[in-house]
Design a binder for these strands. Sequence first.
DNA 1: GTAGTAAAGTGTATTTTGCAACTAACTTAA
DNA 2: TTAAGTTAGTTGCAAAATACACTTTACTAC
Lengths: 226, 226
Amino acid sequence: MHQVVPPDHKQIVTADVVLLTVVDGQLAVGLIRRESEPFAGRSALIGGYVHADKDQDTDATATRVLRQKTGLEGFFIEQLSTFSGPKRDPRGWSVSVAYLALTPLDRLTKALGDGGNVALTPVDEARDLPFDHAQILAAAVGRLRSKGAYSTLPARLLPETFTLSELQATYQIALGAARIDKSSFRRKLTELALIEAVEGLRAETGGRQAQLYRLRQAISVFERRL
Amino acid sequence: MHQVVPPDHKQIVTADVVLLTVVDGQLAVGLIRRESEPFAGRSALIGGYVHADKDQDTDATATRVLRQKTGLEGFFIEQLSTFSGPKRDPRGWSVSVAYLALTPLDRLTKALGDGGNVALTPVDEARDLPFDHAQILAAAVGRLRSKGAYSTLPARLLPETFTLSELQATYQIALGAARIDKSSFRRKLTELALIEAVEGLRAETGGRQAQLYRLRQAISVFERRL
DNA sequence: GTAGTAAAGTGTATTTTGCAACTAACTTAA
DNA sequence: TTAAGTTAGTTGCAAAATACACTTTACTAC
């Protein structure tokens, strides 16, 4: 039969979610005020224990925790990296499976309602985070920046339909890039068929109305030749 | 004070290493015959429990386990992804932090010595792996293929010094790519200063002797413009 | 020497990208 | 109702990057 696993071979396992969105043209992270020890009262990433009885895996933990603590539904989430060690949590040797979640701001504010103990903080103003959350946040922003350059990741910061100008602006924010050429950007997105036009136009302010687009689900990463 | 963590909030945590190398022009994975239950006698990835008393983090676990089970030293290793769930291990809800390790074949065979319960199996012949190790292996090969196209990852399958022909052949194997253009390949590697020439030439068979190169440590990922 | 072989370099056609100007569609207000 | 302002979307071309074929270099074996 199977060996019994001794208790000292078991570790605290949590999922921590870096929820990113765009506020006033800046990347912002959703931080939550911790209710319990350790670090009660401090702002931290949105996280929680794995519940072995109900979570199918840590992805489910992350999704559940994010839902429960923000009310958000239908967000984009992907696994980032795993952080571990004896010192990162004062309760002892622990493992945190970190996730990157992206959402359009309007959806998030709607989900949070009025009160809410979730604060949206510009990523470069999020200081004094407990545990190793500063490191996890840095990894999340790094992932968005690097993977954003060859995938449709930044589009997840926008509602399901968007204009090409909105998309380009979002890429620029997500990548921290100076400025992307308009025609190159459009050519690439349409040639690779990453997006498709949908019925409808939108007038933001004055000026010509813009065609609406949405992501095509099939492809999300650009090809790259060596 | 800190809350006590209830035992049902603790999980089995292991590190599993996908050790890849090139054997006869093919990617091969190092599989080890399991000594103990579950799945005793079966070939599996190289893995082991986190030892909270000696491991600084799961990276240390992976490095230690790979060293202990193969004798290998100075390999390349990076975190891949984390796999978890109630069913993947019959002992119960478990977490496996998976790692990708790369090594040149000669170093590995030297480390393994004569006996050794580590077998090198071509990646597409590795079937019937226990746990979710097939999935982990697929993720590792996928990472090498995708990240290899814009990084020096495949070079880790070669000894410290190598010729450009060897490097190109290794990229082709790692990427599973049809054929890379020689002049483009050389231009890119030298222009981006990913490699540097070292003293010495090598004659493999007949023909002109090839210049030896090594990786420049600083840069390992190519730039990418949108 | 001559043939064979692999490394390394060169020239050029082709493709991709960057830039800037231009046209289109709409709003506002004199 | 017309002119000015604003944003969307397109086009043409220069510049840069890449792919492909071919040439030269350096070595071995006969």
